[in-house]
Design a binder for these strands. Structure first.
Lengths: 161, 161
DNA sequence: GGCGATTTAGCCAGCAATAGTCTAAAAAAA
DNA sequence: TTTTTTTAGACTATTGCTGGCTAAATCGCC
């Protein structure tokens, strides 16, 4: 469990936990982990927010208060080969509404999204739903679409009815 | 009957009682339940006020004095008028991820969203999917959820199937 | 019926246990 | 040297739980 920086070591440890778990999900407590690495709790938050992002294929949920926890899930990628190519070509750092809707329609044609899902997601990335100025808006839209695609590619995502 | 915290265990127990009852109504006594879980009675009140809210689809009535009781009822939320009511209440200018997810779950329980739709929309409003700083992020999320709800309530929106 | 005692539940303040956010300094990289 | 990454620490937000006090309904006695 070597690593150049503390953040690296914490990252490796969490990844090791993930590999050791059967379902690719680990649940931990921030304070506890901080104690294990003898650092401040916010260091854990730092590692999570920089290394366990959606883009890198992780989902992080948490709860504060008594009995609080942090849950980290590896997002298993499924039909990767089928999707990755054109998803990547369509999804850069910026994504216009037109391109996003086109993407959703294609996902529909591929049978990966129902008509309802298409409509709901289109509503969510519509420019009127995103109170952000261009060009930032297209950036936000790109991130949302990435999160959607990742969710869609999860192994445990229910298949379309 | 697992549960991380005492509140979780009490919540699960009440939900189990509700499922066991034919009509979705249970009646209990605060003191009695507190004794069963070895806690102060106000802990029961706490659980009821945080987990059995109208937003989550529960109605809690009670009466004090001798023979007093607490009645918990699962309320089906079919009428669109009422849907509009609490959606408006729940959706202010700002919307936290927690509140948004709760909303999506409720919509799911009401049969207005499929499990897939819930997951996709949850991904879209996840804080990791919204590269915007707080408090702006909660504002963006509120707008997205509004757009989604509006879409859901359109007359020409396809019904779930 | 009236009225005090009893038996409930409600409310609130406060402490405990968590995690999140922000800032600045140190360290590393460019 | 300048910029980016890492780290610590102070402050904030949220959730869980207890205990004391309040309010309401019922009971029992007159």
């Amino acid at each position: 469990m070597e690593g150049k920086t503390l953040a690296d070591r914490i990252e490796n440890y969490i990844k090791w936990l993930l590999k050791s778990s059967a379902d690719g999900i680990v649940e931990l407590q921030r304070q506890e982990l901080a104690e294990r690495f003898t650092c401040v709790p916010s260091q854990i938050s730092y590692v999570l927010s920089t290394r366990f992002t959606i883009e890198r294929g992780y989902l992080v949920e948490s709860r504060r208060g008594g009995g609080g926890y942090i849950r980290i899930a590896r997002v298993p990628l499924n039909a990767e080969e089928r999707l990755k190519g054109w998803v990547h070509e369509a999804l850069g750092e910026y994504l216009s509404q037109e391109a996003a809707v086109e993407l959703l329609e294609r996902l529909g044609e591929e049978g990966l999204l129902t008509r309802r899902e298409q409509l709901l997601l289109a509503a969510a990335i519509n420019r009127q739903a995103l109170p952000v100025e261009l060009p930032r808006r297209d950036q936000v839209r790109a991130c949302i679409m990435k999160a959607i695609i990742l969710t869609l590619m999860r192994d445990d995502f229910p298949s379309a009815g």
